[in-house]
Design a protein around this nucleic acid. Structure first.
Length: 815
RNA sequence: GCCCAGGUGGCGGAAUUGGUAGACGCGCGAGACUCAAAAUCUCGUGUCCUUUUCGGACAUGUGGGUUCGAGUCCCACCCUGGGCACCA
């Protein structure tokens, strides 16, 4: 009988559905060890699931099935992220409201996920666009508002003057509108910000407590970008005005030969000498214009102000310049230029012919080239000469602080989170603008603020939200004075919904029939948190993972959750490339569609092949031919099942030593391999074991049914449909989900046979087979005499040294 | 430019407390089955030398080093992928 995967997979998917997926339904508070295995939920597009989703989802499915069989209470849920720009753009293109098609797209995703046999707890399914869901997103925003974490401030957006709409950064690459190609502008709009920067220190420090890939942690650290330094006051010559600069290298202050202000610096014009004013004004005007159009030039530019400041340490008079290489938004917007010890200052000094004074030398090397940016020993620094950089910083810092001219400061690259989008397809921000009371937050009972179901939401032309045009929706009453007021028309960013979805799975009320309901139950959160395994692509290394961590910490602060970090262990799957080794993309025509693979080879083959492709974390290309190998393997497993079934079990031939040992070691390898997510290796071991079972039948007429059925249990997390079908083929009535995971005997893991490699000068020259591990050096030396290599390499040679590793190797060093 | 990860057969990849390099799969070659093809099965398959056998040499990006022994450790360099990019 042929392996009819279509029939088998359909059959078992129907059985699981008929049982209402109860075998995967997770019960809260069960007295078993808990484990929360989470996928990054998919963004709902019209394209449906791609092979990258299947990769991560298969990995977590294997883990989930494995831990269930090992007696864990496993939470393994799935949901849908569906607000956001891509969908809105698609909706504009097809001239339909997202509400009219997004639910259909969700249905399609669900259908696809089920067709691959993922064992989710479907009773906990969520979608970010459900009003019951985003009611909570809005409520959490209100809590942040209440705690003073939300403020409104002008912030730049990319604006396309031709499409008359705001663009996301990724839609305005290189200052060009992605859709029409016209030059984009930077427009300043009042936008809502969340003070994530208040959490910078905690977001940084708590990384230490997480079991995440080191590179992802490093990326987050760099993103937060903490730098500790000093703010130093430089006094203007002939004036009381002081300019504050920020530096992390206070030890180089004797080498400061100029000061640079950003063009946005409030003192820029004020301190400029009359003769220089025209020049400076022109420069500032040009630079701000370039900024508006998002033009960034590598070339260093700048202009002299005619003014000078006095270096507070050596009283040296140094010129003040203005240059756009100094950023307004970081530090104080002003720096001290130390060209000898900073690359950019060096280039600036070279270009404008400014003085370069070396004040730090390396501790060991003598010859150096300027700029020398590392630390070292101070020279030409007055009383501080001879100090090491770090000591000098402390000392100079303290002396300046004593004189009231400096303070210790910490700056972060991390910026506050711009939380508004001038878009329709997002959670409406639940605030009211009242002509009497100003901005007023809505009351909890008035949530959710739902999106109006309108047909058209064309851009307003001003960069404002399309909701601005929907007058009936905007008009409302002020919750405070009850007078006429307007709704906020900006919506939340796509990240909002994904900041707490892992909590929603826990909190969803599974009992409420039909109706979707979230009940905040801290005991449940206490039982399930933190997420034990979080698997997804590295593209979310910074933003999603940082925002979600921040969100969680906020909920911790207001007492809604009890722990400080949401995701204890993170695992990043590697990208699956197209067969040509390129990133999959429609334009390159190298996209592999999982639906088609399921149709041609079946879900089990798809799952297993994606796991066999290579290490889960590695980037690896799809191979159209390669998948046949896994397909053949499953076919062989199937035909082996047929053979075993036909043959009456013959008791005398039943147990075979070789099979016993091989099976025991396979159980070990599979158990440990799954825990470490080394699925590709586990599968290769299964292939070897299957070969053995078949060889035993064909060559020795040994039919070991028990071993085979144990093997099927090991295969089950990888290929659930086939395994379950074979299981039932042998008269087993239960679902494999409820079978306990096979145990291995550590004693049997020890090898029965040892091959001892015989080396001459480190090169393998022969091999000794022994059934004892404990062969002594003496015994081996005797045995070696019988080997052919003896005549050639050892006889009549002087052995100067013997290296012997018990049970492994013996190395004769000869002259 | 800086930070991180990685370079192993024709291809995807195994092998790290330093101890048989190339497991497993793809592809390829030969054979069996077949009228034939597909499918399946069996055997072979790093490169080179050797008439064959026996065997040997060379091989884990490049060049050095440590070691009885290096894919694995150290130094320098080259290449690929990812992230950040005037952050003082």
């Amino acid at each position: 009988m042929k392996y009819n995967f279509r029939k088998i997979e359909k059959k078992w998917q129907n059985v699981w559905q008929k049982k209402k997926f109860l075998m995967w339904r997770t019960i809260d508070f069960v007295k078993k060890p808990k484990i929360y295995i989470l996928d990054m939920f998919p963004y709902i597009s019209g394209e449906g699931l791609h092979v990258g989703h299947v990769e991560g989802y298969t990995a977590t499915d294997i883990l989930s099935r494995f831990y269930r069989m090992n007696g864990y209470n496993v939470l393994h849920p799935m949901g849908y992220d569906a607000f956001g720009l891509p969908t809105e753009n698609f909706a504009i293109k097809i001239k339909k409201n997202p509400l009219s098609f997004v639910p259909k797209h969700i249905d399609r995703f669900r259908k696809q996920l089920r067709s691959i046999g993922f064992s989710y707890d479907w009773s906990r399914e969520i979608a970010t666009i459900d009003p019951e869901y985003y009611k909570w997103t809005q409520l959490m925003f209100l809590k942040m508002y209440e705690k003073g974490l939300v403020y409104e401030k002008e912030a730049p957006i990319n604006f396309c003057p031709s499409c008359k709409t705001g663009l996301a950064d990724e839609e305005a690459i290189g200052g060009r509108c992605e859709r029409c190609g016209s030059q984009t502008e930077i427009k300043y709009l009042k936008q809502w910000h969340i003070k994530i920067t208040l959490y910078a220190e905690r977001l940084l420090n708590d990384l230490e407590t997480l079991d995440w890939p080191e590179n992802i942690k490093e990326m987050q650290r760099n993103w937060i970008g903490k730098s500790e330094g000093y703010e130093v006051l430089f006094s203007l010559e002939n004036s009381n005005e002081k300019i504050a600069v920020f530096t992390t290298r206070l030890d180089t202050i004797y080498g400061a030969t100029f000061v640079v202000l950003s063009p946005h610096h409030p003192l820029a014009l004020k301190i400029t000498q009359p003769d220089y004013l025209l020049n400076v004004e022109n420069y500032i005007y040009e630079e701000i214009k370039k900024e508006r159009f998002g033009i960034y030039e590598k070339e260093i530019t700048g202009v002299f102000t005619g003014s000078y400041v006095i270096n507070p340490l050596n009283n040296k008079k140094i010129p003040i310049w203005i240059s756009s290489y100094v950023l307004a938004g970081y530090g104080t917007g002003a720096i001290m230029g130390v060209p000898a010890h900073d690359e950019r200052d060096f280039n600036f000094a070279k270009k404008f012919d400014l003085e370069i004074i070396q004040v730090v030398k390396p501790e060991k090397r003598i010859k150096i080239e300027l700029p020398y940016v590392e630390e070292g020993i101070l020279i030409s620094s007055g009383e501080y000469s001879g100090f090491k950089s770090d000591e000098a910083r402390e000392k100079i810092g303290q002396d300046l602080i004593d004189r009231g001219l400096a303070k210790k400061t910490v700056y972060y690259k991390l910026r506050d989170w711009i939380f508004s989008r001038q878009r329709y397809w997002g959670e409406p921000i639940p605030l009211i603008r009242c002509p009497q009371c100003g901005v007023v937050p809505l009351k909890e009972k008035d949530l959710p603020v739902t999106l109006p179901k309108v047909k058209s939401y064309e851009p307003t032309g001003t960069g404002e939200s399309p909701l601005k045009n929907i007058k009936i929706w905007i008009k409302t009453r002020c919750p405070q004075c009850k007078g006429p007021a307007e709704r906020e028309t900006q919506t939340m960013p796509q990240w909002a919904g994904s900041c707490w979805y892992y909590l929603a799975y826990i909190l969803k009320n599974q009992k409420s029939k039909g109706k979707y309901e979230i009940v905040w139950d801290k005991n449940k959160l206490k039982y399930w948190l933190p997420v034990d395994f979080y698997v997804g692509g590295a593209e979310h290394a910074v933003l999603h993972l940082l925002y979600a961590r921040f969100w969680h910490k906020f909920l911790y602060d207001i007492g809604w959750v009890h722990n400080k970090e949401p995701f204890q262990k993170l695992f990043n799957q590697g990208l699956i490339l197209g067969p040509d080794g390129q990133k999959m993309s429609k334009s390159k025509g190298n996209v592999i569609n999982p639906d088609e693979v399921v149709k041609e080879y079946g879900a089990d083959t798809l799952r297993m092949y994606e796991m066999f492709l290579g290490p889960l974390e590695a980037e690896k290309p799809w191979s159209v031919e390669g998948i046949k190998g896994v397909f053949r393997f499953l076919n062989r497993v199937w035909s082996l099942a047929q053979k075993l079934k036909k043959e009456k079990p013959d008791k005398s031939k039943k147990s075979d030593e070789e099979i016993k040992y091989a099976l025991n070691s396979l159980i070990y390898e599979t158990t440990e391999g799954i825990k470490k997510m080394r699925f590709n290796v586990v599968i290769s071991k299964m292939m070897v074991f299957e070969d053995l079972l078949r060889a035993k039948i064909e060559k020795e007429n040994i039919y070991d049914r028990e071993a085979f059925l144990t093997f099927i249990k090991l295969l089950f997390p990888f290929a659930p449909h086939l395994s379950q079908e074979i299981w039932s083929l042998f008269g087993k009535k239960n679902l494999l989900d409820f079978e306990p995971w096979p145990k291995y005997d550590p004693k049997l893991l020890e090898k029965k046979q040892f091959s001892i490699v015989v080396q001459i000068n480190g090169k393998k020259r022969g091999i000794l087979i022994s059934d004892k591990e404990t062969l002594t050096e003496k015994e081996i030396k005797e045995k070696v005499k019988a080997l052919p290599l003896y005549e050639k390499y050892l006889k009549n040679k002087k052995i100067s040294k013997i290296i012997f590793v018990k049970g492994k190797i013996i190395n004769f060093v000869v002259k």
